[in-house]
């Protein structure tokens, strides 16, 4: 399997306050295509920082991060935005859908940024929303949907740009167990059937239980990296 994400001696120091915080202290990591990986660890262990750097939302203080062979730490702001648009799908803990857009528009919008044709946008939006089980809620705005449904739209949006992988920051944190279970089933199915790569940061034991690889971070370092056979 090809390497999608690779970090070497990745460090992140937050120096805004009087006392610098070492969020990452030298993380070496490789994520391969098709993985379903959970990054776990206690609060303050550096999960979200690692995810932000992998996702190109933040820059490392030291070390190297490459996504699909591209060293993203040295891209300019606009190059990084374009890189994210083409290569990375995001699923946030609080869904973060655009409240004034319908489910369909939230998904289509990403493809609009990629200048895809209208026919392709409509076809792919409908296909993705059907795939996440929301074929009948396409014209609903986020406020008219449950948390689980919103997170499904967020997954469809993340997939819309045909990214190399999807980063999900605690995607089930705001969902009840039944909804969370159903969302995880759906993502696992996508991973199995379509080979979509998922990287989660999570506290949720349900996610950890189903992950094929579990990376545990403690104090900004990888404490364990467990690959499971399923």
């Amino acid at each position: 399997m090809s390497v999608v994400i690779e970090t070497k001696a990745l460090e992140k120091i937050y120096s805004e306050s009087k006392f610098p915080v070492h969020a990452l202290r030298g993380v070496d990591l490789q994520v391969h295509k098709g993985e379903f990986t959970a990054i776990v660890g206690p609060s303050g262990s550096g999960k979200t920082t690692l995810l932000n750097i992998i996702g190109g939302l933040d820059r490392p203080t030291k070390g190297r991060i490459s996504v699909g062979g591209v060293d993203i730490a040295h891209l300019s702001d606009n190059e990084l935005i374009e890189f994210r648009q083409k290569n990375i799908g995001f699923v946030f803990q609080s869904y973060n859908l655009i409240p004034v857009l319908t489910a369909k528009e939230n998904v289509e919008f990403i493809m609009l940024l990629q200048n895809r044709s209208k026919e392709e946008r409509i076809r792919r939006t409908e296909s993705l929303l059907n795939r996440v089980g929301l074929g009948d809620r396409m014209d609903n705005r986020p406020g008219e949907m449950s948390g689980g449904q919103q997170q499904r739209v967020a997954v469809a949006r993340a997939l819309a740009s045909s990214p190399q992988f999807i980063l999900a920051d605690e995607p089930t944190a705001n969902l009840d167990s039944k909804t969370a279970g159903s969302l995880l089933d759906m993502m696992l199915e996508m991973n199995r059937e379509e080979g979509t790569t998922f990287v989660f940061s999570t506290h949720d034991s349900r996610v950890i239980r189903r992950a094929r690889r579990v990376i545990t971070l403690v104090d900004g370092l990888i404490d364990s990296d467990e690959i499971r056979e399923q």
Partner: peptide
């Protein structure tokens, strides 16, 4: 801010 942050996170360029 959050909405604008999301737009930039998912790939909307600063110019846009």
């Amino acid at each position: 801010q959050r909405e604008l942050g999301v737009l930039m996170a998912v790939g909307m360029k600063k110019g846009n």
